[in-house]
């Protein structure tokens, strides 16, 4: 059986954009479904702690439109969403979209800088390990990567706060007033996802070093540095990029823990507070924004990987 001829990039682009749009719609629908189809009445769940009277539950149901038929609720949810209306927070009565807009920048800054750390540390370790498999350097770097996967963010973060904020007093342990507040949280979060990046980089490098074209390049006398940059690195970019994209999802999730740990404002903190307050519209809104961001990032990563390495995603 012959592999099918590679499709042109535009066809790949069109198909990937279509599946991306489908995923976006599915995510929106799933979040709606989770809230409405799961056993238990959201209004009762929200008022549960207060031991609320049936009248209060009914009033909340009416206020949230939960007493209307499901398809009608679904249509309202979609049309409101398209207008950027995510509903009203039950806790403080402000529009959910506005609350999210205020917090999003903090989280995106955190996740962005953390991503840079993850790439820096992950690629560095992976390169150190994968370019000399089996060496002491490889074993040290691999051990560090495994440890990075095993140490939970909330513990490594506490240790760093203890060292740099409590003992040395070099960096603040919380807040979000400037770049100094970003150093510790982004480093902690970034290192947590550097492990998988390092492991994949290592594996990709080892695999590529085994390929005939590397042997051919070696035979031609290509110097080691150029071999690594032009022949090995270029081929390793696509898989590493894909895993890095998945890590961004982890970063968005990990931001929840990191923001709580460092007392930073952000979407993660907003989500945790929303859950503690049982503020369902807010939970729904934040979850939606985080999930949609994740889908969009992965879409962008897939497109970039496909563009960089035609073998990666065009089949």
């Amino acid at each position: 059986m012959h592999p099918p001829a590679p499709a042109p990039f535009t066809a790949f682009l069109r198909r990937r954009l279509l599946t991306g749009a489908l995923t976006l719609w599915a995510v929106v629908t799933l979040i709606f479904a989770l809230v409405h189809l799961l056993p238990g009445d959201p209004a009762e769940t929200m008022l549960a702690r207060a031991g609320a009277a049936p009248a209060a539950v009914a009033a909340l149901r009416a206020e949230l439109g939960l007493d209307r038929p499901l398809p009608a609720q679904y249509v309202t949810w979609l049309t409101n969403l398209l207008r950027g209306d995510l509903g009203i927070s039950l806790f403080n009565g402000r529009p959910v979209a506005a609350l999210i807009r205020e917090q999003a920048a903090h989280t995106f800054a955190l996740a962005g800088v953390a991503f840079a750390w993850a790439l820096l540390v992950g690629l560095g370790l992976g390169l150190a390990a994968g370019s000399r498999p089996g060496s002491l350097r490889d074993r040290l770097a691999s051990a560090l990567a495994v440890t990075g996967v095993a140490v939970p963010v909330f513990w490594s973060g506490l240790l760093l706060i203890w060292l740099f904020s409590v003992r040395l007093g070099w960096l603040p342990s919380g807040g979000a007033d400037g770049w100094r507040n970003l150093v510790l949280p982004s480093f902690v979060l970034g290192c947590a996802s550097a492990g998988p990046v390092a492991r994949l980089t290592r594996v990709s490098l080892i695999e590529i070093f085994d390929q005939p074209y590397i042997l051919a390049a070696r035979a031609r006398g290509v110097p080691a540095r150029r071999l690594l940059l032009n022949h090995v690195a270029r081929n390793a970019v696509a898989p590493v990029l894909t895993v890095a994209g998945l890590q961004l999802g982890f970063l968005l999730g990990g931001a929840v823990v990191t923001e709580t740990l460092f007392n930073r404002p952000g979407l993660g903190k907003l989500l945790v507070d929303a859950i503690l307050w049982r503020d369902l519209p807010l939970v729904q809104g934040v979850a939606l924004v985080v999930a949609l961001t994740y889908v969009l990032v992965n879409l962008a990563v897939d497109l970039a990987a496909g563009w960089l390495d035609p073998r990666a995603g065009w089949q």
Binding site: V27, F250, G253, L271, I275, A287, V290, A291, Y294
Partner: peptide, 15 residues
């Protein structure tokens, strides 16, 4: 398509 921890948080929020 969901970050794992987000999914977990959603379940906790709903259950």
């Amino acid at each position: 398509a969901f970050p794992a921890l987000l999914l977990a948080l959603l379940v906790v929020a709903l259950m």
